[in-house]
Amino acid sequence: MTFSFEQPPDELTWYHLGPLLDADAGRLKYNPEQYTVHGVSNNAVACCWAGLLVDADGGLVLTDLGRSMLADWKASPTGQRWLADQAAHVEEPNAPAAPSAPAPQLVPAPADQLDLFGVVS
C-alpha cells in the first residue's frame, strides 16, 4: 500500500532528483550510520511522503508515479542537459589524473593579529 502525507510535486527539482535517481539505479539503500533518524536522507523521506518512493527490502524504490515523473524529467530538455552534463563529468577509470594546482603558500600572521582578546587581568 502506498500513502502520502503531502501532494506530489508539480515538477521535479533538485530536492527530489537525488533520491529518485538513486532509487532508479538501485542505490537508495538504508544507511543508519549516515542517516541516524530515518536511515535515508530527509529528501528521500519527503519523496516517500509525496508518493514518489516506497519502502522495499533494504531500501526505497520508485512508485509508479515516481517512475513516471522521473521518466518525463529525463525526456525533458532540462533533464537531457543535466544528464549530458553529468555524463561529461564522469571520469573514466583508467584516465590519467589531471595535474593539480600547487598548494597555496600560507603567510604567517604577525604576532599582534594572533592575540584576539588581549591580556585578561
Rank of each mutant, 00 (worst) to 15 (best):
M1W: 11
M1H: 13
T2Q: 14
F5G: 10
F5D: 04
F5H: 08
E6S: 15
P8M: 13
P8D: 14
D10Q: 09
E11H: 10
L12W: 02
L12P: 00
L12F: 03
T13G: 11
T13S: 14
T13Y: 00
T13I: 00
W14C: 13
Y15S: 14
H16L: 08
P19E: 13
L20S: 05
L20T: 03
L21G: 04
L21R: 11
D22G: 12
A23M: 04
A25L: 10
A25G: 10
L28P: 02
L28D: 06
K29F: 08
Y30T: 06
Y30F: 14
Y30N: 07
P32S: 06
P32W: 08
E33M: 05
Q34L: 15
Q34K: 15
Q34N: 12
V37H: 08
H38T: 02
G39C: 08
G39R: 11
N43D: 14
A44S: 09
A44Q: 04
V45T: 06
V45C: 05
A46E: 05
C47Y: 01
C48F: 02
W49D: 06
W49M: 05
W49V: 00
A50Q: 06
A50W: 00
G51Q: 03
G51K: 02
L52P: 01
V54E: 09
V54T: 08
A56I: 00
A56K: 03
A56T: 03
D57T: 10
G58S: 08
G58Q: 11
G59H: 02
V61E: 14
V61Q: 10
L62E: 12
T63F: 06
T63P: 03
D64H: 10
G66H: 12
G66A: 15
S68M: 14
S68A: 15
M69L: 15
L70G: 10
A71P: 01
A71R: 08
A71I: 01
W73M: 12
W73H: 14
K74I: 02
S76N: 09
T78Y: 12
G79N: 11
G79C: 11
G79Q: 09
R81I: 07
A84I: 01
A84S: 13
A84F: 05
D85L: 07
Q86C: 14
Q86N: 14
A87I: 04
A88W: 05
H89G: 15
P93D: 07
A95M: 11
P96V: 08
A97D: 06
A98K: 00
S100C: 07
S100I: 05
A101K: 00
A101M: 03
P102A: 15
A103M: 04
A103F: 06
Q105D: 05
L106T: 09
P108Y: 09
A109S: 07
A111Y: 02
D112Q: 11
G118N: 09
G118K: 06
G118E: 08
V119G: 10
V119F: 08
S121M: 04
S121L: 03
